[in-house]
């Protein structure tokens, strides 16, 4: 159990480093929008999500309604429901009691989901707690630093740090792309659709665009390249 906690924490380090740079930017942005450092910290601690928090700041700054706030969060963050559903299939059921599920679900972010779904072993609560604790530390720590001392780092450094999380995503999906034609197809389809949403169907919000791209690309891949259980295990290794 302790071993799982440490393993999770270790796997959480690159996530935390990436978060540090992104949430640093969030902290700067929040203070510029008239939110106090303490409130910005509370938002990061309770939400643990980048796009949703940035949009939330906009709603607060423009004195929007609570319904608007709820709808904005629902749209941008609905992708987490898909990730939670996917992770629910990987859990070590004997260890994941109701209470532990209630706790661990707090920490399902894009990056934690990505690293957890790349594991070959069933997920234990300790493993997820370790990863979430380190990631939250990075996310909240970066927010505090950004909110309190946003102008310390030169812009050349903060700009370059903007790519860190994307670099991590690439490191996750490229190795299986190299090995499996089916994953190559999935990634190419999702990326192609995402480009369409960025430049052609620009009326669709970021959160919905991600959901539509992922559902279409994965459904097409599932039809063209059905996965049997043996292949699933092999692919995960």
């Amino acid at each position: 159990m302790k071993k799982d906690l440490l393993k999770g924490a270790e796997h959480g380090i690159p996530i935390a480093l990436g978060y540090l740079s992104v949430s640093f930017g969030f902290g700067i942005m929040a203070v510029r929008a008239g939110i106090t450092p303490a409130q910005a910290t509370a938002i990061s601690l309770t939400n643990l999500t980048s796009a949703g928090q940035a949009a939330g700041i906009d709603v607060i700054a423009s004195a929007g309604t609570l319904i608007e706030m709820a709808l904005v969060q629902l749209t941008i963050n609905l992708r987490y429901a898909l990730m939670s559903l996917s992770l629910s299939q990987k859990l070590d059921k004997s260890k994941f009691t109701l209470l532990k599920r209630l706790i661990a679900s707090y920490g399902i972010t894009d990056e934690i989901f990505a690293v957890c779904s790349a594991q070959t072993q069933p997920l234990t609560p300790s493993y997820m707690y370790g990863m979430i604790a380190i990631a939250v530390l990075g996310w909240v720590g970066g927010t505090v630093l950004g909110a309190v001392a946003g102008t310390v780092l030169p812009e050349s450094v903060t700009n370059a740090m903007g790519i860190v999380l994307y670099g991590m995503f690439i490191a996750i999906f490229i190795p299986p792309v190299r090995k499996h034609k089916s994953v190559l197809f999935t990634v190419a389809a999702a990326a192609g659709l995402s480009i369409l949403f960025r430049y052609v169907f620009t009326g669709v919000s970021f959160g919905f665009a991600i959901i539509i791209c992922a559902v279409i690309a994965s459904a097409a891949a599932a039809l063209l390249f059905p996965v049997d259980e043996a292949a699933e295990k092999e692919a995960a290794e």
Partner: peptide, 11 residues
């Protein structure tokens, strides 16, 4: 396939 599709679309 969902994780790969989500990550590619976000990246």
């Amino acid at each position: 396939y969902i994780p790969y599709a989500v990550l590619a679309a976000m990246t």
